[in-house]
Simulated scan of single mutants.
Amino acid sequence: MSVSAGRLSWLPGVALAGAGAAAGYGVHALLPGLPWLTASLILGVITGCIPAVRPSLEGVLRPGLAVASRRLLRLGIVVLGLKLSLGDIAALGWVAILSIVALVGVSFVLTWLIARLFRLEGDQPVLLAAGFSICGVSAVGAMAAARGADDRDTGTPITMVTLYGTLAIVVLPALSGLLGLDSRQFGHWVGASVHDVGQVVATAQTAGAAALAIAVVVKLTRVLMLAPMVAIASIQTRRRATGSASASVRPAIVPLFIVGFLVAVLLRSFVPLPDVVLSIADILQSALLAAALFGIGASLRLEQLVRSGLRALGAGLVAWVVILGLALGLVYLT
């Protein structure tokens, strides 16, 4: 009886995360301008701020929230691979593909340097760089798994990715008119600079179907960089662990969920999947990430974020502006 209860100790927290994801979708339905994932994170943070709820969050609900914020996040990353078709990416042309790859690399390094300059702690600079340069929350979660980062280091980068990615939905369409970008250029700019796939869709669709189509393809080309970047991080983590007490628990060079992500990419690229399957996968991926974000939000403690809040906000703002500028330069060059 006690063994069974122990095995199912994750159920209450996962159920709460699922309910939070559903509530986040309800908020999104009422306020379409607020992405589902963002709404779920905000609801999680609000839940974590309620004093009467905190004992349960840190007690009976804690195992399930940990499952939601880690395992569900990784499952969401696997399903994300079904959005990528190698054929669509190849259609961009080698010049565009190589320039996007270069943009991801330069953005990662610059964001990491900016975060270090603002004295962000622990693994936060690496996680912020991954989130801003590759694919937002998914990249933060994947890189955190590869680095063995704790929840405290993960929470701040996810908050920054969510904040500035949401601001892009409002700011970029307004800047597009001032910069004189046509719909294709705007879509390219959005896909090359905005963090999460959902935020890309919400931003690009303001300029029509043509902008949305190019934005999604460019964005998914950046997403494809998730696998090699995480593999590099895993190798570095293994080297760091060599000779230490943690050497016996070194992460795999390519984590299992990244292998699943690559398999999903190949499946989408070479197997004709019905539209209904892709639609279900899209909903499932969003639901998994929404539940994960609620779990992460509920585990955050604002008083801890405040300690590095101004530094993190500053680092995020500078990195965001730099990446917007780099991506805009890429648009004009290609």
Rank of each mutant, 00 (worst) to 15 (best):
A96F: 14
P125K: 04
G64D: 10
V321D: 03
L30M: 10
I214A: 11
A287W: 07
R311P: 03
V79N: 09
E121I: 15
L328V: 11
R54S: 14
G141M: 03
L284M: 08
W94E: 05
A315V: 07
V321Q: 07
L84N: 09
G33L: 07
R250V: 09
T206D: 06
L43P: 09
S138A: 11
F186I: 06
G187V: 08
A52G: 04
W10Q: 09
T206P: 02
L163H: 05
M1P: 15
L273S: 14
R250D: 01
G141D: 09
V194N: 02
G243W: 11
I323V: 13
A247P: 04
G148N: 02
V101K: 00
R301Q: 13
L289R: 08
R152F: 09
G297P: 11
L127A: 00
A19C: 03
W10A: 13
R74V: 10
L175F: 02
L262E: 03
L127Q: 01
L220S: 00
S193H: 04
S246I: 09
A281G: 08
L120S: 01
R70C: 08
D282F: 02
G105A: 02
P255I: 05
A130S: 00
V322S: 13
D153C: 01
A215K: 14
S183P: 01
V306S: 07
Q185L: 04
T206E: 11
H195N: 01
C49R: 14
F108C: 08
P228S: 03
Q304N: 09
P173V: 03
S56W: 12
I50D: 07
Q285D: 15
L120E: 09
A91E: 04
A68E: 01
L11S: 05
I169G: 00
A192D: 05
I280K: 01
I42D: 10
D275W: 12
I46C: 08
A210T: 13
R116S: 14
V259T: 08
I296V: 14
D153T: 02
V265N: 07
V194E: 12
G13S: 11
R268F: 04
